[in-house]
Design a protein around this nucleic acid. Structure first.
Lengths: 333, 333
DNA sequence: CTGTTAGCGCTTTCAG
DNA sequence: CTGAAAGCGCTAACAG
């Protein structure tokens, strides 16, 4: 691999001059530039990113930490981040936190040690205080999918209370009175907020919240099945099931169908997140939009503006969910 | 940020000694080691990965290039790679190639310049020759989802001809005579192989391949819809649709249902890939397993063995697809 | 406009 | 077992 030194020798100039033409950040005479470019070409010179980082203390790369790589949720987000950043000549280093505090912290350290110019974090297990402290550090941080007071300006998040409210209000407006709720892990803030919205809609309609018709799942299909089976065993009547995400809704529907229920004729089901797949299969899932991809894009734009000083559209932190009516929920007869 | 120098001063030893205890690769007296560890602790010292890479010419990170970040397909693969590597203290840098030759090459360059110790590539647009040359270079390469003669030992791939064969044979064994084929992009090798397998099954059954009942999609749901609509407009009779992946199968089923067809009563549909979602919704998709996650794991193991010299299970390159019978295809009445 | 010269933080011979 | 010292490839003052 040719180094900057090889190029400088071949072009008959100094290291510094080669560096200047590579970085295109200082005046170089046209003639010299041409000589250098020719040498670079001849030697197939590629600047060593590592050395450059060490010397300049920036890496033209931003770190992204997501809780998981698989599943339908984070893909679109990562794709958008990568898109925006790649367009600006920056690169993305991805790590996974697996929803575990230790692993999340480790991932952050890894990205920091690798000299990322900024971090985009989707973390759920670390405490707020840790994040506040992190924001004090040298490396700029953006939080996605989480709201932390004190560092509001670094947060890009969905109004989950509203999402929960919209979902339940839709069900109630269809005439359902008895509803079951299939929740995500209760320690997660967004889960709590979705429940809050659910309860607000109930209250507004003068309906009680029934803690028995409530099941705490883990956001995966399997726990959707488990939840449905639990509700069925309970033997309590309910005509609608409100789920905290689409994956669990899918699992629940599968279990319901297997138990001989028709969806939506016998049971209406609401999802949440508007993940791509369920829209394509029967019954199409009614759900709440969660523009996670747009949030990813926004995070990337924030980084571009604040770290790389590109100007552009202004960045907004709070996103609004929307009701998406399809076929899995219908009016109660 | 504390540097190795700060630690050496505080511990009253030389840089070299600190380096030795950090890397744990040379004998250091217990007493010295303790002093150093204490100093590291006190200063909250974190080795700078960039500097370490520059000096040692290895980065403890491996680059992964996938064609796309979104979609249900690559998530599980990346997750497995990350899992295996993280378990060995290595890290993953992910880039996307978007199925475009320029972007794929750029991505490879990026990963190379970042000093990755090895590359795991899922590329589709670059020519074989490029890959062969790449394998000549310093950085070890593993190819996933692609077979290139000459570098067989670097390839981890699925027997797609067999997958195509299994899918079609299943349909024919159910008594279907008229089948339509919804293909992926024809320039892709695996697509061509799936078609080959399809044709072999047809031939074996003494049935002709009908080029009219053939549609080239792009592997996304939208083209599944488009394909179905195309076949419907054609007005030709067929009782089964064989798809080159699950996403297109989902789209096709959606379009079929909207057109008033029942699946599988009026139309049997086969998918390919065994992506998570379609299993959970009605009708559950019959498909061909594509153990992409296992292939990812295998690639990571290869790297562990060949690059980091960890021993372990032996690595096999060729994976066999399996038929997964669910509900979207049934016997013709 | 161009060259010289210190480093960036760490690893790695080579002596001792 | 430990220390001194020479880089890894590049950037960024500072002179000229």
């Amino acid at each position: 691999m040719a180094t900057i030194y090889d190029v400088s020798v071949m072009a008959g100039v100094s290291l510094a001059t080669v560096s200047r033409v590579v970085n295109n950040n200082a005046r170089v005479s046209d003639k010299t530039r041409r000589k250098v470019l020719a040498a670079m070409e001849a030697l197939d010179y590629r600047p060593n990113a590592i050395a450059r980082s060490l010397a300049s203390n920036r890496s033209d790369s931003v770190g992204v930490l997501v809780s998981q790589l698989e599943g339908p949720f984070y893909g679109p987000m990562m794709a958008e981040i990568e898109n925006v950043l790649r367009g600006a000549g920056k690169h993305v280093i991805i790590a996974a936190g697996h929803g575990d505090e230790e692993q999340e912290k480790e991932g952050v350290q890894f990205l920091l040690n690798r000299g990322c110019d900024a971090l985009i974090l989707d973390v759920e297990a670390v405490p707020d205080a840790y994040l506040v402290e992190l924001c004090q550090g040298q490396t700029p941080i953006v939080l996605i999918n989480r709201y932390v007071t004190g560092i509001d300006d670094r947060c890009i998040y969905l109004d989950n209370e509203r999402g929960g409210y919209l979902s339940t209000r839709h069900i109630l407006s269809l005439g359902h009175q008895k509803t079951a709720y299939l929740s995500g892990p209760l320690y997660k803030l967004d889960v709590q907020q979705r429940i809050k919205g659910h309860q607000r809609a109930l209250e507004e309609a003068g309906l009680p919240f029934d803690p028995e018709l409530f099941f705490e799942g883990d956001f995966h299909e399997g726990s959707g099945r488990a939840g449905m089976e639990y509700f069925l065993r309970l033997g309590r009547a309910f005509s609608a099931l409100i789920c905290a995400n689409d994956s669990m809704a899918s699992g629940a529907i599968a279990a319901a169908l297997e138990a001989g229920l028709r969806v939506p004729e016998d049971l209406s089901v609401m999802g949440y997140d508007n993940v791509p797949f369920p829209a394509y299969i029967s019954p199409k899932l009614s759900t709440i939009s969660n523009p996670i991809d747009k949030m990813g894009k926004m995070a990337a734009l924030w980084v571009l503006q604040h770290v790389y000083e590109k100007t552009g559209t202004s960045v907004t932190g709070k996103f609004m969910p929307e009701l998406i009516v399809r076929d899995s929920a219908q009016a109660r007869d």
